[in-house]
């Protein structure tokens, strides 16, 4: 994969410097022109830590000038995410059942649903657009949470790795969730190449991806990372079934239905693991992280709601 298209002057200068292998070319006082300019720049800087770019020297992953630029973009993103979040009346960990409260929070913050639209009304072009946008994350499914593993106490660690073992195919690369999605994309006539559609991604998709990397790459934000994962899993099983029904209604390839069918059952398990064992034990042992667990959960649900409302508006559908 090559660097994506810049969306403003800040990103254009950054990508020029990255391609040249010379981040000292960067003006340290440069600021993004707008949120999208910032979002694609941050996405590309994060990508250095995942698969990297064919047109960027791999050594730049730990370049101090790029890390400084990344830090400023991350601070802006975190401030924006926190400004959207309002702490719930946090249950007292000692006296309230965390799982019950957390599941209720996820239900209360259930936003606009792309799955419901796909199930009954979407046309094939809309579904293909959605799959292209989802590919930005699904082709690296769970990777952002893998950063968190060495930063957790034993019970949360064991539980996260148990969940990840399933996500990564239980030792069978053909069952890797990212591979199942790649198979589905190919069957639909789309590119299964990693990052192939990032240039199409609207701000909301870039923010979803950047938020996961932000939470995953900062030990300080491990609570938010696990809260995000738990909310993601807890809001996945039923929508996945709707997506299966929508794909079947449109007679789209079975390989793509298989990806979502796998998530109906897998995520019914994962949500229990993620909420009860993973987040439950984390907040029991490190109660200071409780608010961040909810912050991560809220960010997951809110970012999905923003994307859903954006796409439904583009398609002329009421949210």
């Amino acid at each position: 994969m090559d660097l994506p298209r810049a969306r403003g002057a800040f990103g254009a200068d950054l990508f020029t410097a990255m391609r040249a292998g010379d981040p000292t070319l960067l003006d340290p006082s440069a600021k993004p022109e707008h949120d999208e300019d910032a979002a694609i720049a941050l996405w590309a800087l994060y990508e250095l830590h995942y698969r990297g770019f064919d047109d960027v020297d791999a050594r730049l992953e730990w370049d101090a000038d790029l890390l400084r630029a990344r830090g400023a973009l991350e601070a802006d993103l975190e401030t924006r995410l926190r400004s959207r979040y309002e702490s719930p009346d946090l249950p007292d960990v000692a006296s309230t059942d965390f799982a019950t409260a957390f599941f209720a929070f996820v239900e209360e913050h259930d936003g606009a649903s792309l799955a419901a639209h796909v199930q009954t009304r979407a046309d094939q072009a809309q579904v293909l657009e959605l799959l292209r946008l989802r590919s930005v994350y699904h082709l690296k499914e769970t990777d952002p949470t893998a950063w968190v593993v060495p930063r957790l106490p034993a019970r949360a660690q064991a539980s996260l790795v148990e969940l990840m073992y399933d996500e990564y195919g239980t030792g069978d690369p053909r069952r890797l969730h990212a591979q199942l999605f790649a198979d589905g994309l190919a069957a639909c006539g789309l590119s299964a190449d990693y990052g192939a559609y990032v240039d199409e991604a609207p701000l909301e998709v870039l923010e979803q991806n950047n938020a996961m990397s932000l939470f995953g790459l900062h030990r300080r934000l491990r609570g938010a990372a696990l809260g995000h994962l738990a909310a993601f899993e807890a809001s996945s099983s039923l929508p996945s079934r709707r997506l299966v029904q929508g794909l079947q209604r449109l007679e789209m390839p079975a390989a793509m239905s298989r990806y979502y069918a796998e998530h109906v059952e897998a995520d019914a398990v994962h949500e229990q693991l993620a909420v009860r064992t993973m987040c439950g034990s984390l907040v029991e042992e490190q109660p200071r992280l409780l608010d961040d667990v909810y912050f991560g959960a809220f960010s997951c649900l809110d970012l999905e709601d923003r994307l859903a409302r954006r796409l439904l508006a583009t398609w002329g559908v009421a949210a």
């Binding site: 148990e162 073992y165 099983s237 079934r241 019914a268 398990v269």
Partner: peptide, 23 residues
């Protein structure tokens, strides 16, 4: 799978496994 969730609400479409229908 390494961990499986059993349906306890008796309404899952994939019994005996949970598919989230209880929600």
């Amino acid at each position: 799978r390494p961990v499986s969730a059993l349906c306890r609400c008796h309404r899952s479409a994939t019994k005996p496994w949970c598919d989230g229908t209880h929600k």
